[in-house]
Structure formats: C-alpha cells, structure tokens
Nucleic acid binder design. Structure first.
Lengths: 210, 210
DNA sequence: GATAGATAGTGATATAATGAACAATAAAAA
DNA sequence: TTTTTATTGTTCATTATATCACTATCTATC
C-alpha cells in the first residue's frame, strides 16, 4: 500500500487516455505502444509511460500495451469500475444540459436525484428522475447514499447548497457556480468556471503584450 | 517588452481574483491586502503577490491594493477591457445553456452567431441571435471578425467544426466535445471535458487505495 | 539458439511552481 | 521628526512535475 502522491495532471491525462483507448478498441486494434497513445492524445511517449508507472506495469517490453486490458486498468484506477450516484441541484439551462448529458452515464455517473427551488420545475420529471424541492435534499441524498453532488445554481445560493450536500453526506462536489466554496477538508471539491476558460483564451490571444 | 512565460495556473487565479474583487468592490471596500484576497479565494498571500508581480506593481507597501484599480488592471491583463465576438456551434442542451449563460456577457463575451445542422433549430432565434445552418459558418464568422469559437457538438463532428472555425479565422477555440482536436499551433485551444472533472473526483474519493 | 529490432520501465536531470523569509517603504503614532 | 507597524515586492529554498537517456526484456528472424 504505497502512499505516493499522484499529480492531478496525471489523473486528467489518464482520463483522456482511457477515452482514446475506447476509441481505438472500437476500431478492433489489439495492441498499442506508448508512442501511439502519445500521438493520439498530444503528449510525449515518456509522459504516457510515467503516468502509468504510478500504478503498476501494464505493458510488455518490445510489444506495447493490450488495448482492452489497459483501458480496463485505467477505468479501475479512476474508480469507474462501479457506478456512482449523483445529485444535481439547480435545474436552469446548465443543470438541464448536465442531467441529459450522455457522457456522464457512459462513464457510470447516474443522476439519481434533482432539486430546484422553483415549485413549477419541482413537479416535472427529467429522464425518469423526479425534480424535488430543496427541502427534501438532505433526506433523499442520505437515503440514496449519493456520493457526488453537482451545483448549478446562481453564485449567491451555492454555499447554502454545498452546506446541505455536506450535511447529507456526499463525498465530492462539482461546482459550476462562479464562487469560492468553503467545505470541510475531507470533501473533494472541484470548480468548473465556464467564463474562466474563455478568459485563459483571451489572455493567450493577447499574450504578446508581455 | 518582456517575453516572460506566465503559468496558466496564474491566469486562472487572476480570473478568480478579479471575480472576488468585483464582489468586494460591490460592498464598497476601497483597500485590500494580499492576505485578505488570499483568505477570500483560498490561496496563500505570497501566491497572490507572486501572481501580480508578473505584470507590475499594483499595490502600496504598508497599505495594500486599491480594489477598483487592481480589479481594472487584472481585467486589462486578461484581455477583458474590450468585448469579444464568440460563435457557438451545436445547439443541444449544453449549447443552449451556454448561449443563455449570463456569466459570459458579464465578462464581455458576446455570442454573435449560432450554428446547428438541424434545419428545425436553424430557423429559431436565441437571445436575438439567429440560429444558422453550418454551411454559412465560414462566411458569417469571417464577416463578423469573430475571434472565439465554442464547440458543443458530438465528439464525431467536432474536428470538422474546428476545421471550419480555423478556416473562418477564429483565434481561439473552447471545445466541450470529449475528443482531442488537431488545430494549427497559432490557434489557442482549450478543452472542457465535463466527465473528466467527475473522474478526478472519483479518483480522489478512492485514492486511499494507492 | 543466437541476434536484431522494438518498446516498456526507470533513475537522473532539468524545469516549473510554490512557499518562506526578508528587505523596502508607506502611513500612523509617539 | 523619529519610531513603530503594516504590507508589498522580491530573493532564495523547497517541492513538484516533466523530460531525457538508459537498461531490461519481449518477439521475430536468421
């Protein structure tokens, strides 16, 4: 049981590798080299091997990696060999987009409950999942043993929702509200700020100024 | 004209600082220290000063930073002192969510054209912007001198759209399709993979295994 | 069975990012 | 006017990450 620190960049790349391997596997290719993976996803071959080396030896020297095996190993590493129960709060346009996003279910993320303050919305059903009022969040999420929460409410409401999710026992939160949330250290928190992504682009476009 | 390399992490933090400063400014606070900013956004004070130091001296020793001034400086650095013309391709749920996302317009990102293959969609109007068929993409984007493209089409179609955007002269692409795109080196490309974000969380939840 | 060619795994090295410490300096107090 | 206090800007040390170059070893061929 090594307690080696794994860079987050490595995790992100593993996720990309697995996606690429799914594609390669679909084409019926059986074996692949680190160089070919590197080519396919835009990194160096050494990087691919280093990333995998954190977790074991998955290849055969002189030959390469078995596509199906490597894919399965990476999915296991990422925790995707089992399904995850996800709750989503905030059924605006973004929330609606995420509840119907096929990429989540494909990777084993099942949205098991949806919450919104709007009583009109809280009567509807999305993909067979009832939309419920916020008051029921803690109860339902606890009951379902939901591990992951997605926040797609306005910035001003996000901290309250995060608090409820923590109270309900989620282990991780994916936050789309453009605000810094405070959660206990044992809760995994990730922020996706859509505007920030555009701002990195505009900075880079104008970066010759510096 | 320094040609100093700026870490991308710095740019992302600057974006967060500016958001936080907007909030602080709204409360009428005039002066702020690096420590207070650090507290507000969850980084170290030294990190805040380091990030700013790449671009100049914006504070006063013994005093701190003027909130309005610093905010304006950062927005300038990020290229947000002017508006940007953005085109969005792929009016699914995610595309629809992004076209109506208020956070973009607030920061000066104006969606000036929308494209979709579906002839039904290509007759509608979102936020006063006509939805047009793909055939018109190159022409319209050129005409508008649109600098940024957002891709929200399925993975299989994404490369074609990217090619069209490049042909039409965009300088940067924000790609939401879960696929690695090939674009010329001079085009700024950023990928937002929603599933990857959840996968980093599930890895971290289960990370005690390593 | 020996040899050549290919490719994984890995230790050493280089680069980048972060953190800690401190000198410089402005404002407030004495 | 001098001293004290606060806080920036910057240097130096540390840590983290990526790259390079080498070794080990597998398969196929002679």
């Amino acid at each position: 049981m090594k307690t080696l620190k794994i860079p987050e960049a490595t995790i992100i790349r593993l996720s990309v590798y697995s996606r690429y391997l799914t594609e390669v596997d679909r084409k019926g290719i059986v074996t692949i080299s680190s160089g070919e993976i590197a080519e396919g996803v835009g990194v160096s071959p050494a990087q691919v091997r280093k990333d995998l080396a954190y977790f074991g030896e998955f290849g055969t020297r002189g030959v390469g990696y078995n596509v199906k095996d490597l894919r399965r190993h990476i999915l296991k590493i990422l925790g995707l060999s089992v399904d995850w129960s996800v709750t989503l709060v905030g059924l605006g346009n973004l929330g609606l987009a995420l509840t119907t996003y096929k990429g989540f279910r494909e990777r084993g993320f099942i949205i098991t409950s949806i919450f919104d303050t709007d009583p009109g919305k809280a009567a509807t059903k999305i993909n067979g999942v009832d939309v419920m009022p916020l008051e029921r969040l803690v109860e339902v999420v606890k009951q379902n043993r939901t591990q992951i929460g997605i926040i797609t409410v306005p910035a001003a409401a996000a901290q309250d929702i995060a608090d409820m999710m923590v109270k309900a026992g989620v282990q991780a939160i994916l936050n789309f509200a453009p605000v810094v949330l405070n959660v206990p250290a044992e809760i995994e928190l990730r922020n996706v700020d859509l505007a920030v992504n555009l701002e990195v682009l505009t900075f880079n476009i104008g970066a010759q100024r510096f």
